[in-house]
Computed example of a mutant assay.
Amino acid sequence: MNKTQLIDAIAEDAGITKAAAKSALESFLKNVGETLTKGDKISLVGFGSWSISERAEREGRNPQTGKSIKIAAKKVVKFKAGADLDGAVNTPVKAAAKKKK
């Protein structure tokens, strides 16, 4: 699903116009970005949480040449799925596994 498809789905589910759905989605994305930029965590109970983690500088290898290179330290965004989302994603797998037994 891409952004346009998500906007269409939000508009249909919420019974609002595509313009209103686009505005709401863009506001959500802007606020998530700003919050994470400040170093704060976002938690939506049941859905999941976003946080920032520091990745230390490390040594790596160029796969083409095999030469050692330094990979700079940076901040990365992490997402951890909540129980409801995790359950929804994994339910079909669990059901299929039980059927095979």
Rank of each mutant, 00 (worst) to 15 (best):
K98C: 08
F79W: 04
G66T: 13
S51V: 06
R61K: 14
K94P: 03
K75D: 01
D84M: 09
G60Y: 09
R55Q: 12
S51A: 09
V93T: 12
I71A: 11
V77A: 00
D84F: 11
K101I: 04
K99S: 05
Q64T: 05
V89P: 00
G66S: 08
E57S: 13
R58C: 05
V76D: 06
T91Y: 05
K70C: 11
V93E: 10
A72W: 14
Q64I: 04
T91Q: 11
I69Q: 10
R58A: 09
E57M: 07
G87H: 00
G87W: 00
E59P: 15
G66W: 05
K78T: 02
E59M: 12
A81W: 02
Q64H: 06
K101D: 14
A95R: 07
D86T: 08
P92K: 01
K74P: 15
A96P: 10
V77N: 01
F79V: 01
A95C: 11
A95Y: 04
K99Q: 10
E59H: 06
A97C: 07
F79S: 02
D86E: 15
D84K: 13
K75T: 01
R55H: 15
K70A: 12
A83M: 07
E54A: 15
W50P: 01
A97R: 07
W50H: 01
E54M: 09
K70L: 12
P63N: 04
T65A: 09
T91D: 10
A56G: 04
G82W: 03
A72L: 14
N62M: 06
I69Y: 04
K70Q: 12
A88S: 06
R55T: 07
R58L: 12
N90L: 07
K78N: 07
A72G: 04
T91W: 03
L85A: 04
G60T: 06
N62S: 13
S49A: 12
K67V: 15
A97N: 15
G60L: 09
A96S: 12
N90C: 03
V76R: 03
E57C: 13
K100L: 12
A83V: 13
G66L: 06
T65D: 05
K80G: 14
W50D: 00
K99L: 09
R58H: 11
T91R: 05
L85S: 02
I52K: 03
A73T: 04
G87R: 01
K74E: 08
S68G: 05
